[in-house]
Nucleic acid binder design. Structure first.
Lengths: 242, 242
DNA sequence: CATCATACTAAACGCATGTTCAACACGGAG
DNA sequence: CTCCGTGTTGAACATGCGTTTAGTATGATG
C-alpha cells in the first residue's frame, strides 16, 4: 500500500515476514521478540508466520540461512575475502543493511550454528589473506600463524559486537562515515607500527613460554609496563594452589 | 570481605539467590532464565526471589551491582588497571569465577547500565596506561590517542565476547591455561611489531583522510593488500546518493 | 505474655507467549 | 461447476511466566 523505493511491500508474505524477523531479532534479540510483533510488522497474522516457517525457531533458522547465503556468495572473481567485502558494503549503507549487521552480530554472540559457519569462514578468509601477505613480504611472519589469524579476526569483530559501547563513546553510530573515519588511523597505526616501541615484553613472554622460568621473580605480572590488553598473562609454568 | 568466603550453602538466602542468578544469567542470558529456575538453584521459593529483590529486573540490578563493586574495588596501592587485574585473577580460577566472567560478558553485550560503567572504567584505565607508556617512551604515540585506547580496549574484550567461538576453534575453553598460552604470543607480536612490514597502507590512509582525494581513483578499496580487519575503509569524502 | 517485623512458602492470578484449529478466499485443473 | 491446494485469518488453547496474596514460623522487643 506504500509506494516506497523498497520493494518490500509487494514482496511475498513469507519474505516480508523473514525480513521483519531479521530486523526485530537483530535489534532486540530472539527472546525479546514475539511472533506477534513480527507478524504485525509484516502485516500478517501470527498464524501465517507459523504456517510458513513451522515455528519461531524455524523462522530463526530461515533468517540465519538468508544471512549466511547473502554473506557467503562470492562477490567477484577475486579470491579476496567475500564476507569482509560484503560487510563493508553493508556498513556503507546502514539505512538499508543496518538490520543485517545487527542480526549478524547477534548470530555471532549467540553462537548459533549459522554464526559458527560465518565465523569459520571469516577466519579462513582472514588466515588466507595473511598467508598471502606473509608470502609476498607485506606482512610479518608469526610464531603461531593460525592463532594470530584468530586473534585478528576477533579484533575485527570487536567493534561490531560492542557497537553500542563504541557508539556511546564516539557519539555517533558505528555505521556512520564519521565512525569509520575515526577508527581507521588508530587501527592502521597499530597494525603498522604496533604499540610497544621495543620488544622487551614480547621477548619476556617468549622466554617465559619457552624455558621454565620457575627461578627468579615469582610475581604474576612480568609484562613490564603492562599489557593494555585484558588477556591473561603469559602463564607461569607453576600455578600455586590455594 | 568482598570476596566470597561463605560456602554458599549456609550463606543467607538473598546471597544464594543472587549468586544463582549470576550463574544462570551469565550462562543462558537474562530472558532465557526464569525466576523459578533461579529459585530452584538457590533452594528457595520463587516468591522469595521477588520478596528480596522486588522483581526480576531488580534481581538483575543487584547482580550488576555485585559485579561492578567487585570489579571496581581498587586492589592495591598501584594505580594500575584494577579491572584488568581482577579479570586476570578470575581467568586464573575459572572453576570459581567462571560465572562472573560469563556474566560480565553478557553485561557488556547487552549494554546494561552496569556494563556501560564497567566499559567506561576499563577504557579509562587502558587510556591512562597507554598515556603512561607514551610518556615514558615504551609505547608509540598516536594521531588519535583517545580512539586508539578505545580500539585497544575493544580488542582486549573481543576474546571474552567471542569466547564460545574462540573455544570452538581452540578446542579448549578460553579460561584455560592452554588458551592463555596460545593467545599470548600472537597478541604481543601484533602489539610489538604490528602486522604490516611497511607503512604503505597507513600512509595511504593518512593521505586519504588528510587531503580531499575526490579527484583520481573513485575505487573503494585503497588499502593495498587489504586490511585483515573487517572495519570499514577510510571513507571517501563524497558518498554517492542512492 | 502480647506484639511486631522479618524470612519464607503454597497457591493462585493475570497475562503474554508459541502454537493449533477450523474456516474462508481464490485461482487453476478436471 | 466442482474440486483441490495454497495462502490466509480470527479465535482459541495450553503453557510458562512474573508477580501477588494470604498465611505460617520465628525470634527479638515491649
Amino acid at each position: 500500500m506504500n509506494m516506497r523505493s523498497v520493494p518490500l511491500e509487494d514482496a511475498t508474505a513469507a519474505v516480508r515476514i523473514r525480513e521483519a524477523a531479521i530486523v526485530r531479532f537483530g535489534r532486540q534479540g530472539f527472546e525479546r521478540t514475539s511472533v506477534r510483533q513480527i507478524a504485525a510488522d509484516a502485516g500478517v497474522s501470527p498464524a501465517l508466520v507459523i504456517h510458513h516457517f513451522g515455528s519461531k525457531e524455524g523462522l530463526r533458522a530461515a533468517c540465519d540461512e538468508a544471512l549466511v547465503s547473502q554473506l557467503m556468495t562470492e562477490k567477484s572473481k577475486t579470491e579476496a575475502p567475500a564476507i569482509a567485502e560484503t560487510m563493508r558494503e553493508w556498513l556503507d549503507r546502514p539505512e538499508r543493511f543496518g538490520a543485517y549487521i545487527d542480526y549478524f552480530a547477534t548470530m555471532l554472540a549467540d553462537g548459533s550454528e549459522g554464526g559458527n559457519r560465518l565465523f569459520d569462514r571469516m577466519l579462513g578468509e582472514t588466515a588466507a589473506m595473511i598467508d598471502r601477505g606473509v608470502a609476498d613480504g607485506t606482512m610479518h611472519a608469526s610464531a603461531d600463524p593460525e592463532m594470530r589469524a584468530v586473534m585478528i579476526t576477533l579484533n575485527g569483530l570487536a567493534p561490531l559486537l560492542l557497537r553500542d559501547q563504541l557508539a556511546r563513546v564516539l557519539g555517533v553510530p558505528v555505521t556512520s562515515a564519521a565512525a569509520a573515519r575515526r577508527m581507521t588511523l588508530p587501527i592502521l597505526e597499530l597494525y603498522t607500527h604496533g604499540l610497544y616501541t621495543d620488544s622487551r615484553i614480547l621477548d619476556a613472554a617468549r622466554a617465559a613460554l619457552a624455558g621454565t622460568p620457575s627461578t627468579g621473580t615469582p610475581t604474576r605480572s612480568d609484562k613490564g609496563p603492562g599489557n593494555p590488553n585484558q588477556d591473561p598473562d603469559p602463564p607461569r609454568p607453576e600455578s600455586s594452589p590455594t
